[in-house]
């Protein structure tokens, strides 16, 4: 299967600290890969290398088969959705405008913006009425769903998620997970999901990539990796995750 994101021998250092060390990895088109690892293993940095927010010191990155950076980096980023922990909605913009901001930048007309906003909100089970509120007037779970809508607005071919579902109770999380699955079933995209939560990885991802000290420790389908962890680090990570 063709890999839509490819990183070859990517290195990134901050001073003496090597955050990514000679890392090579690929992600399969239209599948979800969970990126799991202890804190400081370089997961968030890897995401930001993919959409060009962080420039690596060495190595090669190919997106959609073409080397990065190429052409208009801003336009490229608008083809790559991005959502983070806590949603980070823009507090001065109403919910609907938060969601449709990228479409607005792309020059969509009003009718198209409204239609797409409505479509996404319905998929994520958000009342249209919420669109006119400010982010602070929403619950944490609602804000997370709005964050996903914003990331998916232009039907990006790649969706980068940096622990977007942490910080809500288990029931809410299950509900958001199922909504999210509906969404990516309706609009397939290549998902790279950074998470601490192995359960979440099981629930949402096909593939699993385990990170350790800026390198990929093991990669495969979730079932493969769980069935035969490469070493004790991977095994303990999976065990702790299962226990939580």
């Amino acid at each position: 299967m063709q890999e839509i994101i490819e990183l070859r021998r990517v290195t990134k250092r901050y001073g003496d600290t090597e955050v990514l060390g000679d890392l090579s990895v690929g992600f399969r088109r239209d599948l979800a890969t969970a990126l799991v690892g202890t804190s400081g293993s370089g997961k968030s940095t890897l995401l930001q290398v993919i959409n060009g927010l962080i420039k690596p010191d060495a190595g090669e990155i190919r997106l959609f088969g073409r080397p990065l950076p190429s052409g208009d980096l801003f336009r490229l980023r608008r083809r790559v959705g991005y959502a983070v922990q806590g949603a980070a909605l823009f507090p001065h913009l109403r919910v609907a405008r938060n969601i449709s901001l990228v479409g607005e930048i792309e020059g969509w007309d009003r009718r198209r913006l409204e239609a797409r906003t409505h479509e996404l909100m319905a998929l994520m089970n958000l009342d249209d009425e919420l669109g006119q509120r400010f982010p602070y007037q929403l619950s944490g779970g609602q804000q997370q769903r709005v964050g996903i809508c914003r990331a998916m607005f232009t039907k990006p071919e790649i969706l980068l998620l940096d622990e977007p579902f942490t910080g809500v109770d288990a029931t809410t999380k299950r509900e958001i997970h199922s909504r999210f699955m509906d969404l990516i079933e309706a609009e397939p995209t290549t998902v790279v999901l950074v998470t601490h939560d192995i359960q979440e990885a099981y629930a949402l991802a096909t593939d699993l990539a385990i990170m350790r000290n800026g390198k990929i420790e093991q990669q495969g389908t979730v079932t493969e990796v769980v069935a035969s962890p490469k070493n004790e680090y991977v095994a303990s990570l999976l065990r702790d995750g299962l226990a939580s």
Partner: peptide
């Protein structure tokens, strides 16, 4: 970070 990641110039 999010504003940059969304592709705003």
């Amino acid at each position: 970070l999010v504003a940059r990641a969304l592709g705003l110039s």
